[in-house]
Each structure stands twice: as C-alpha cells, then as structure tokens.
C-alpha cells in the first residue's frame, strides 16, 4: 500500500513538472495542430503554393519537391534570409517534412506564423511520404 502511495506521489510530481514544461519549455509541442495542418487535396485546390522543405540538409540534397526551398530549425537564421528573398506572401505557404509522425513541419509553420505574423502558412499532413504516394514527387526529385 505504501508503494502505491509513493508511486502516485511520483506520478503527481511528474504531472506538475510536465504541466509546467508545457507552458514554459521553448520546444514544448502544442496540443492544437489542426489549425496548422493542411491535407494534400486542399493544397491542390490552392491557386498558388509556396513550398518549404523542413527536413534535414541531407534529406533535401537527396531529393525534394520541385521549387521547394530548404528551411529547417537547425540552420534557421541562415536559411531564413534565402526564404525571405524568395517568399511570395500572396501564395499559400506549405511546409513539409518526412512523414506523418514528423513534427518539424509543424514547428517551422508555427514559427513562421509567429515571426511573420501571417496565418496562411500550413504543415502538410503526411509530409514527403504523401507527396511520393500521390505521385507529385519522386525519390531523387530536384
């Protein structure tokens, strides 16, 4: 019985710390990603799309969506300059990373929304895998 009480005490401490981390940790994930996400059908209905590849430099070099520019958190300051030079604010900006489980695109989309004060920036559901599955991109595309 004492062990169970101790286990609950530890769980409580971890819950409090996790709750604090949610509000204070700079890299804490957000519960609400739906407003950031866009599926491929919605993207295809857009008149003009500006693509951002949020994967690593290595993955981008192996292959990326035609016209996409590289913008990842590892080299944010450096790559943001190139992004701002080429970005078209009138286009819908879509960020992709490797797959459904990858959160890089959400982090990049969220950060761009915050830094640019623009709402028309989204993370592609399914990422690069979806682009490959739908035939919009092929392995080794550049």
């Amino acid at each position: 019985m004492k062990s169970v009480q101790e286990a609950f005490a530890l769980i409580l401490i971890a819950l409090v710390c996790g709750g604090l981390a949610y509000f204070t940790h700079p890299l804490a994930p957000s519960f609400g990603i739906d407003e950031l996400s866009i599926n491929i059908e919605e993207v295809q209905s857009e008149a003009e799309v500006f693509w951002i590849d949020a994967r690593s430099d290595e993955d981008f070099a192996i292959g990326h969506f035609e016209g996409a520019i590289l913008l990842n958190e590892e080299r944010w300051e450096e790559l943001l300059v190139d992004f701002l030079d080429r970005w078209s604010p009138s286009a819908t900006t879509v960020v992709y990373c490797s797959s459904q489980s990858c959160m890089r695109s959400h982090e990049v989309a969220k950060r761009l929304r915050e830094e640019l004060g623009v709402e028309d920036i989204f993370a592609l559901k399914g990422g690069w895998e979806t682009l490959l599955e739908t035939g919009l991109a092929k392995e080794g595309d550049e």
């Binding site: 004492k2 101790e6 286990a7 005490a9 530890l10 769980i11 971890a14 819950l15 981390a21 940790h25």
Partner: peptide
Amino acid sequence: SLFVPYLELCVGFSFVTGFLRGGA
C-alpha cells in the same frame, strides 16, 4: 512527450537517493 521524461527523471532520482523507492 511532456509527462514521461519527468516520470523517468523522478524514478531515476528515487532509485539513486532511496526517496520513495518503493513507488519508483
């Protein structure tokens, strides 16, 4: 992703110090 790391840290701390070890 927010809870498990702190739970692991609490368990680690308990094992090393002996504090609340039964629960850990």
